[in-house]
Amino acid sequence: MNTINLTLEVWRQSGPAADGGFVTYEANDVAEDMSFLEMLDLVNEQLIATGEEPIEFESDCREGICGTCGVMINGKAHGPEKATATCQLHMRKFDDGDHIVVEPWRATSFPIIKDLAVDRSPLDDIVTAGGFIGVNTGSAPDANLIPVPKETADAAFDAAACIGCGACVAACPNSAAQLFTSAKIQHLNLLPQGQAERWKRTEAMVETMEQFFGSCTNHGECTEACPKEIPLDFIAYTNRDYVKSKIKNRKLAGQS
């Protein structure tokens, strides 16, 4: 088993209101097959052994789908691997002697809870504003009643693949949540089932987003950071839907 030695600079902050700062730790004998989070587990074991409080960070499924984990690693959201969440980043991507800076996601609306853990609940607020199709349990028609062209279903899926990790906001210099919001909106707006609430949904979700996050300047950092590589095009579709919605006569919405 190959092992490497690393120097970590980890952001430590005891609570939301406390001052934070970087603390340097030596991580020795890190197996290359470990994931980045297992490396942090190992550091934590050592910290506990020496009586220092372990580093708080969030993770759950550790297979890149739940979206719980995520930190800035050397200035990149989820680290250097493209299309990879932090839990799926393995230490063999680093070299012996590397210096790694680990910092929490940052945005005004992602306040730090402790160390590397942040509160991402505004993303849920955006979904609450309209990220659903209003169908009560039991009232659905047969699933094959409405054919959905395969291309449409695939495009909707590309948007629906968003795992809600917040890396897009973290990577954006403006702390904009456009990619997350657009993925959520377009997943539903592209499908025939989502048409009834399309305009209402678009306006409500965009306007909720804007209460919490910055403005998109089309830099594209979000897509680069996204573990699911959600394309920027969804942002464009959302912009178009939003302006259309403002201009449209809703009573004629059925005609588009």
Partner: peptide, 25 residues
């Protein structure tokens, strides 16, 4: 955007991370 960023300056607008940020796109 400045409001949405805890530590950004008006001119470069990009200083978000104490440890620096590595832009890709």
């Amino acid at each position: 955007s400045v409001k949405a960023n805890p530590s950004s300056s008006v001119l470069d607008g990009t200083k978000k991370y104490e440890g620096g940020q590595d832009f890709i796109a």
